[in-house]
Design a protein around this nucleic acid. Structure first.
Lengths: 188, 188
DNA sequence: AAATAATTGTGAGATTTGTCACGAAAAGTA
DNA sequence: TACTTTTCGTGACAAATCTCACAATTATTT
């Protein structure tokens, strides 16, 4: 596991053994079972997460109680309620395990200390944040410029594995349509 | 203008006069007239921009030639085709002035040099990237969980000034609906 | 001021998507 | 295995949104 995480970081910056050890000291390993919540809407947000193994969904319940999937997170992905995490506000979304999931987690304090003590890591997080921002913007583009079928095809093409690991109801929610619509899109 | 930019940065990190001078040496001031393109889809992307005055729209032309507004940028906002900028790829979107606009612009090389020479600025950019990521995610949430009317109301409430400066056709595009639909939403 | 271009509103009808309801199938649990 | 829960597909109808067309208005340019 540590090797995976180190490889993940070293895709962006090089680290000595000592530096990696120092990085690791800011994280703790946690295990969650299927259906466990890592973050509950309204509760305090203690951590940002890096997924070691398993699968998470980030979602939001609207005024009418409907759930909307904002994101999935698989192995090697970062996830969290970043608004709440960085601003130390109650969670605006919930983060839930769809499979038994192991994560590395980091508090805001650890994040800040890490950036301060090992400036390279600031650059690492900057890269991650930029990538995240870019892919969010591409998703926005998709949502405003394509119909449900096109979004479905693109997601299937990009993350085929997701369709085997996640109920289609949640895929539909992620795509911004109802499960019935998605079902009809895929049938004919 | 320099004062505005300094204030903008100092909302996140403190700078000495010399440090700010050093920061400024990585930017150049440019002026664009209404309808000018700062970035043309397919062309090389030389800069990321900070808007001094004026108004920009970032948009994307789909396969059928339809334009889709991904973002607007007003005074004190950063904008650019970040995917193309950071990966040094041809522009995926175009950035166009909707009013005569003055910007500070920065090359990728200047960005990297600045991060290297003044680590505080890495932290500044990290903050900006995180905010950008968060607000993109909130927009995604809005797109998948609310209808056109709700999105319209929210935008009007948040950026009323936009409705006086931007044709409603473009607002509609930003909201992911046609101008006819938007027109009917606002009429009754 | 006149000419041109851009913006806006609205009707009519097609298309997409949502809602509600039901049952079958599959997966998870005891 | 038996029981329960979750997932999935589909019909029927309602609602939202899109497309195309045209005219009126407003801005911009000459």
């Amino acid at each position: 596991m540590e090797n995976l995480f180190r490889a993940h970081i070293e895709k962006v910056i090089a680290l000595t053994d000592d530096e990696f050890k120092h990085v690791m000291s800011h994280f703790s390993l946690m295990n969650f079972k299927r259906r466990d919540f890592l973050i509950r809407e309204g509760a305090r947000v203690h951590y940002a997460f890096w997924v070691v193994s398993g699968l998470l969904k980030l979602d939001y319940a609207d005024a009418t109680g409907k759930q909307h999937v904002v994101a999935f997170a698989m192995e090697d992905w970062w996830e969290g309620d970043y608004y709440a995490f960085f601003n130390q506000r109650p969670a605006t979304m919930s983060l839930q395990a769809l499979e038994n999931t192991q994560v590395l987690c980091m508090t805001l304090q650890d994040y800040n200390n890490l950036c301060r003590n090992l400036p390279k890591m600031t650059y690492f997080f900057l890269q991650k944040a930029n990538r995240g921002h870019i892919s969010s913007q591409q998703r926005i583009l998709e949502l405003i410029s394509t119909n449900a079928k096109e979004r479905y095809d693109k997601l299937l093409n990009r993350y085929p594995i997701l369709f085997q690991r996640v109920p289609h109801t949640l895929i539909a929610s992620y795509l911004g349509v109802t499960r019935e619509t998605l079902s009809r899109l895929t049938a004919p």
